[in-house]
Design a protein around this nucleic acid. Sequence first.
RNA 1: GUGGCCAUAGCUCAGCUGGUUAGAGUGCCAGGUUGUGGCCCUGGAGGUCGAGGGUUCAAAUCCCUCUGGCCACCCCA
Length: 427
Amino acid sequence: MPPIQSPKGTRDILPADMAAWDEIYATHARVAEAHGYRAIQTPIFEATEMFERGIGAGTDIVDKEMYSFETSGGDRLTLRPEATPATLRAVLGAHLDQERRPVRVHYAGPMFRHDRPQRGRYRQLHQIGVEAIGERSPVIDAEVIEIGWRFYEALGIDGIDLQINSLGDLDDRRRYRQMLVDFYTPHLAGLCDDCRRRIEINPLRLLDCNQDAHLAAIAPPASNALSPASSEYFESVLGCLRDAGITCTINRHLVRGLDYYAHTAFEFWHTSLHGAQNALGGGGRYDGLAEVLGFPATPGVGYALGVDRALIVLQDAGAGPAAATDADVVVCSLGAESVGYAAALARQLRAAGHRVILDAAERRLDRKLRNADRLGARVCVIVGDNELAARTAMVRDLGQRDQQSVAVDAVNNTVTAILGCGGEGDK
RNA sequence: GUGGCCAUAGCUCAGCUGGUUAGAGUGCCAGGUUGUGGCCCUGGAGGUCGAGGGUUCAAAUCCCUCUGGCCACCCCA
């Protein structure tokens, strides 16, 4: 019988990798909170209907990528494929928008999509994001984009390519949809199978089809359908970004496929991610979403960034935090008699705030010292029969390679002094 | 969901057109030192060659199925 493995498209984050993950989450939280965004958490699963309405039939996510199930009580539930609908539901459901506008929140957590797995593409994927709910203003659009930009900057990721586009308000979008249908219909016979389906379901998606790219290149740009007010809105967003020193590429093929998206759409691309996975993250304004979910019309804008992909970029660049050590102090007993004494010393050191491993194994001291090195400890406290009898301990500075015998009561201070001076010795 | 490449020790990989008990480096454990480390020397453990089936006197090697990873699509993070 083969051993159980993690389900396809999922993976374990092992202790050695956790530092990099923690850094990404902590950096994002710090940058978002520097802009006044507060953390929020929503359930991992939600009513299936929320995603059907909030993401929309006709999208790949809803049509074929959701982990949906029915409870014994008959509820239709789905593991969340993204966080925006639930975040909006939570904020509006709790009436937070009645207290202040916009409501600024950030989140982090796993999402689930039944895709075919690849590098940087998982069935359990991890996203971090922000949402600003309750205000329609180009300043807010730019603020959200800037947070994402500063996040990558703070992580030390260079080469971010910000792609941006505007599809105008809901009326503009309807107009643009029709323009595209009119443009593509004469070419219907020459379109690929997918596009013949798209023209019915989601004409905006025609633009980013690779096979029919020659048509997309000459299709009318979205700017043709923008009302003067929408154009002005987009120009304002671009102006804010320019003032912030953020460079972007205007990409008129960039679309968010859902009907309630409006105005600004953007993605963060990176040159080191090739092919299908070139997007590190994306977002946009979703002024129609609240109504679709049954709430009063409420504008909103946000983004979602892929943690898994940010990690790939960091690793490919050879960046990332130094490997974490297991402990600062290892307490070694010598012989069975001193185990209890060593354990008490370890306890005493932990109470003083140190990270301490007790090595009570029956083996030679040189092996224990070697082990202490590998654990990344800087101090080793050695106790055997002599120390037990004299109520002392041998405190060894692993960096300096020297040691002193001190009384039990002085152990904490001695260890603290060695760790505190920050001396790494010749390690 | 479609098509392709791949899977040998904990890790990185050898293993020629099928041919005895499947190897190396590294890591792990132990000894070299009655209680002093990062090096070195010696020894040891560890593999039903991803799983299952088939062809053959004989399969890590050839064929089929499954599982998983990767790549290109599709789409997205």
